[in-house]
Structures are given as C-alpha cells and as structure tokens.
Amino acid sequence: MMAPFANPAEERKAPRSVLFMCGMNAIRSPMAEALAKAMMPAGTYVASAGVRPGERDPFVDVVLEEIGLTVGRHQPHTLDELEDDYFDLIVTLAPEAHHAALELTRSMAIDVVYWPTPDPTVATGTREQIVSAYREVRNHLALLLKHRLLGQMPEKMA
C-alpha cells in the first residue's frame, strides 16, 4: 500500500540549487549542506548560511566523520557573505532563519520550507550524551533530505 503523498504521477524533481539556513551556520545548516552534497544529484548547487555570525562547532566534524563526510574548511557565514543569492529552494532549520528567509524572499519566486530541527547545543551530560544529540540531528536531517528532497519512500512504508 502506498502512502498518500507518494503519487508516482507527481514525481518530485530535485531542486538545482538549495540553501540551508539556521541561526549561526555552525551546526544544523552546515551539517545539512554536507549531507545534501553527498546525496543530491551531481550538479546541484548546495550552500548554507546563518542569520548571524557563529563559531565552527567541533561536534559537527565528529558526527559527520562517523559516516565518511566532512564540512571541509567550512567557516560559519551569514547571508550577506554568500557569493550567490539565487536558489530554487531555501530550507530553514530554525525559527529565526525561517523568518529571515521569508523576509528575504518576499519579492522573489523562491520556495522556502521550514524543517524544525532540534538544537543539539542544549544537550548536557557526558561527551557521549552530547555527541548522541548531534547524531540525532544528523540522522534527522538525512531522513528529511531523503524523503522531502529526493522523494524516497521511508523503508517502513515501501
């Protein structure tokens, strides 16, 4: 039995350019960018930015390295610092980023979607408990990319 949203006649096309936005471009959006670059079709332009300046978070490197990915030399940057400002899709991962994206695109034909994504910096406890919170965010973003951008059915529904 097929899920109601999975209509083969309405095959989804992956966007050609995607911007991921969060508060400081330190955790959620660079993680989403790295995952999307690995998962999206070749030739897809993927970038990330924050609403305000942030600092690189070493736990992002830890959880991406676990799955063979990296953010490379990524340093957090804001929307104003982007080289390109046209995207087919802007995916916001935090409320403040969503509001900023809607304001930015008011007069543009750019789709903006909000994927509520937890902030792993609120995790406390041992190093392993904190890393686990970052893994959950990584896995959450990977699932959203597969299902919402690439149109893949969840395994349980297939």
Rank of each mutant, 00 (worst) to 15 (best):
V113S: 03
E83R: 09
V122D: 05
L82C: 05
D111A: 15
E65R: 15
T121P: 01
G50H: 03
H74Q: 05
V71S: 03
S48R: 05
E55D: 10
Q129F: 00
A123V: 02
P116L: 07
N139T: 09
F59M: 04
F59E: 00
L150H: 09
G125P: 01
L69G: 14
P58C: 01
L149T: 06
Y86G: 04
S107H: 14
G54P: 04
T105D: 03
S107R: 15
D61G: 08
H140R: 11
R106M: 14
D84P: 04
V137D: 07
A142N: 12
L104A: 06
N139A: 04
V131R: 05
V137R: 13
G54I: 11
E155A: 15
D85I: 00
A100W: 09
T70W: 14
N139F: 02
V60Y: 08
V51M: 02
V51L: 06
V71R: 12
I90Y: 14
L93N: 06
E136L: 10
A94C: 10
A123D: 08
I67L: 10
V112D: 13
H77A: 09
G72E: 01
R56D: 06
P58D: 06
R106G: 11
V122G: 07
E55C: 00
Q75D: 00
L69Y: 14
L141W: 11
A49T: 11
G50T: 05
L145P: 13
H99K: 15
H98M: 05
I130R: 14
L145Y: 13
E103F: 08
E128K: 13
R138S: 00
T121Y: 09
R148M: 04
I130L: 03
D85R: 13
N139R: 05
L64E: 06
L64N: 03
T70C: 13
Y134T: 07
E65M: 04
R135E: 00
L141S: 11
T117G: 03
G72M: 01
V112C: 14
K156G: 10
A109L: 12
H74A: 00
L89Q: 02
S107D: 11
H99G: 09
L89G: 01
A101V: 07
D111I: 02
V91F: 08
D119M: 07
V51Y: 03
D88I: 00
P58R: 07
L79E: 00
Q129K: 11
E128V: 03
V137K: 12
G151W: 13
Q129T: 06
V113W: 09
E81G: 02
I67N: 04
G125S: 03
H140I: 05
K146H: 13
Q129G: 07
Q75P: 00
S132V: 02
D111L: 11
M108I: 02
R106P: 01
T92Y: 02
P116M: 06
P53R: 06
D80Q: 08
T105C: 15
A100H: 10
A142E: 15
I130M: 10
K146M: 11
R73E: 12
V71N: 10
T70K: 14
L93K: 14
V51A: 01
D57C: 04
R56Y: 03
L145K: 11
E96N: 15
E103V: 04
F87C: 08
D85H: 08
Y134M: 11
L143V: 10
R127L: 15
A123Q: 10
L93V: 04
D80A: 09
V60L: 09
P58W: 07
V62D: 05
R73Q: 14
L102F: 07
K156D: 14
A49K: 11
T117F: 03
M153S: 08
